[in-house]
Design a binder for these strands. Sequence first.
DNA 1: CGGCCGACCTGCGGGC
DNA 2: TGCCCGCAGGTCGGCC
Length: 273
Amino acid sequence: MPELPEVEVTRRGLEAPLTGATIASLRMGKPLRWPLGIAPQMLQGAVIASVQRRAKYVVLQLGNDRGVLLLHLGMSGRLEWLMNPVAPGAHDHVDIITDRGLLRLHDPRRFGAVVWSASTAVPPASKLLGHLGVEPLTDAFTADGFWAALKAARAPIKPVLLAGHLVVGVGNIYACEALFEAGIRPTVRAERLSRPRVARLHAAIQRILTLAIAQGGSSLKDFAAVDGQAGGFQKIVQVYGRAGKPCRVCAEPIQVMRQAQRATYYCSRCQCF
DNA sequence: CGGCCGACCTGCGGGC
DNA sequence: TGCCCGCAGGTCGGCC
């Protein structure tokens, strides 16, 4: 679930309560995708200096050179901010207890993780963040740069977007939606997209992600913001999850196919390039 | 190096 | 009703 918009909605919800908070202790439950990488008690007394985001990671910068905590939501994770903590449930695998409240990772499938690193330039953080592409909602993401990068790709555009090597944060929902908005067929080879089409895709990615953030993200199943509020983007999707239903633009039934083991939804009439 | 595939784990919905 | 299969928002490592 959690693509860039959901992670950004989560980050925004944590910024005010967590910035300046002091970690009192950590409770680690069942193992997640990666180990924490440090004894939990070593983080006691660390101050959370800032709450940032890189791709689909929430990055907690710890003051006094105490490193960083990378939080990843995997497929089914969400972070909860609890002022009045309740006992953890079966899928609550990490509690970060601070002097202001409790940050809890709820993740039924356990593809998520909380990873400590001495800095983002040092393993394991560098390994997780090092190969990531450009942030799509910054000035570093330009149509020209995107076009040049796509020219060097050798695969259909949809899996290229999902890979995150060129541009980050675009997962299955938003890849399908951005390609629909740009009128581009998901199977077109990335390197064959014309400059004007890449410009449309560039604009579509930025618009869709921005819209999704404003909608509070997509809540297909598990996702909610840190205050428990569900997102609303799933109500306004054009193609994702709408196989067989009429296209909202041309009424043609939405198609579904598989690319690189992932479902791809598209309109064969609106997406003809 | 780039791209494809399996694997990780749990829950749910559909078909029989 | 109950079981089995397939599928789900991500992404890493191994293998061409």
